[in-house]
Design a binder for these strands. Structure first.
Lengths: 234, 234
DNA sequence: TGTATTTTATTTGTCGACAAGAAACATACA
DNA sequence: TGTATGTTTCTTGTCGACAAATAAAATACA
């Protein structure tokens, strides 16, 4: 592509190359800078980062482990596709993780967790205010990830983070074409969730988490069906 | 170690080395042949498999991605430890996944799934019959993994498989010292679960899955506290 | 004897190069 | 014209070697 990004990498420390490539590629995949199906060329990446293929390869193996890229043996490797036919399994898992993590946060959170959560809450509110759809996606994910962390179950947070990542891709796909936005309502719901967590009201937190998740899923599905009606070529 | 396993690998195909190393190391870790904390030496493995360090490294990166080994940068890499202090989060996640996968199996299974599930059910019954604790662990995990597959939600099956793997390590740890066994009761419960799945009775499947999981967790926790009383050095 | 500093050794991270596999292309043959 | 075979090209998988980072050992010094 263009060689406009070969600045800002004059010196790197020993183990940092892999992480840099991994982080950057991951972001580019989740932000659809590299849309699903994009070919990933090791040599090209090696030149771009001025590294040998070895650390590039390690980053790719990690991305493949998270299902973000698909590797055909001895052939090409490309950004993994979004499985629209099984989106319902994604929503199913997402709703459950919303519930569980919110519930556990109400149960297990520590005082120091709340400022962090509130911080992302305000970021999200600001994004809604300024109608920045992409910032909404990011801050919403960060908000719920912080809640999950406060729930302190690494197995759930691990799955939840992956689901939020995948959701980032899916949402960005739609928000590219349709200037939709998460309504103010979600901000209010976030506030309610925080209150339930702070009050350690497990059942309310569970219920709110579930309702909130279903709101979001419904919103996305609405976008989805609308998109399907417009461009039939899928 | 001993050089008694350098037979049976005269010819390998191009992409097969990594998978072989990955599979074998994974098994050795889960079977506690490589107990938690064991050092992993790349050069040693390279000699053992008669490969260069590159494919070994790739296998290790994948194992690290699944949390089976820990890598200290620029220093050693070793089999990851079992976090006994947070076992409750493991049980928590395990019980939920038992429930969800059983419930979804009742909802989504196809006719061809049942023979597979029944097959593992019989394997497990045979293991109980012959009082082979290690076979019980393996067949029980395979049984529930098959149910999860029939549920057809890859996000849940992915997490569940990881949990079952971790459980394999934990159980094997205890069964090394204490010749306990899963009672016949679990066999009967498995039969009930199959019946509920076949009848597509979602609620009963959910309830049975939960009860079954809690049985198992209770059993393991009993072993755990007993072990703690005996060897205090932990 | 105990602590600080230098030296050695071991292990990891990175590199450039080469060979295998598969796809794309070209050629021969009916 | 269409199929089959051979060739080329491109990408990946693997290798051996080297350099950096750290730990261990050795040495100097109080």
């Amino acid at each position: 592509m263009t060689d406009t990004d070969n600045n800002s990498l004059p010196e790197r420390k020993r183990g940092s190359g892999v992480k840099m490539v991994y982080d950057l590629l991951r972001d580019e995949i989740l932000d659809l800078v590299l849309p699903p199906g994009s070919p990933i060329d090791e040599v090209q990446l090696a030149e771009r980062f001025k590294l040998s293929r070895t650390p590039i390869r390690e980053a790719l193996v990690r991305l493949a482990g998270e299902g973000l890229i698909d590797t055909l043996p001895n052939r090409s490797t490309m950004v993994s596709n979004i499985d629209f036919l099984n989106l319902h399994t994604f929503f199913e898992a997402l709703v459950l993780m919303y519930r569980v993590t919110t519930r556990l946060a109400a149960q297990n959170h520590r005082p120091e967790d709340l400022p962090v959560i509130r911080g992302f809450h305000e970021d999200y509110a600001a994004a809604v205010q300024s109608r920045d759809a992409l910032a909404m996606i990011a801050t919403n994910a960060a908000f719920h990830a912080a809640i999950a962390e406060a729930g302190r179950n690494p197995y759930f947070t691990g799955l939840f983070r992956r689901l939020l990542d995948e959701g980032r891709r899916i949402l960005r796909l739609y928000y590219q074409s349709y200037e939709e936005q998460f309504p103010q309502r979600f901000v209010d719901e976030h506030a309610e969730i925080i209150a339930a967590i702070e009050a350690r009201d497990v059942e309310v937190a569970d219920r709110l988490g579930k309702a909130h998740a279903e709101q979001i899923v419904e919103q996305v599905q609405k976008l989805f069906t609308r998109a399907n009606k417009l461009d039939i070529a899928l």
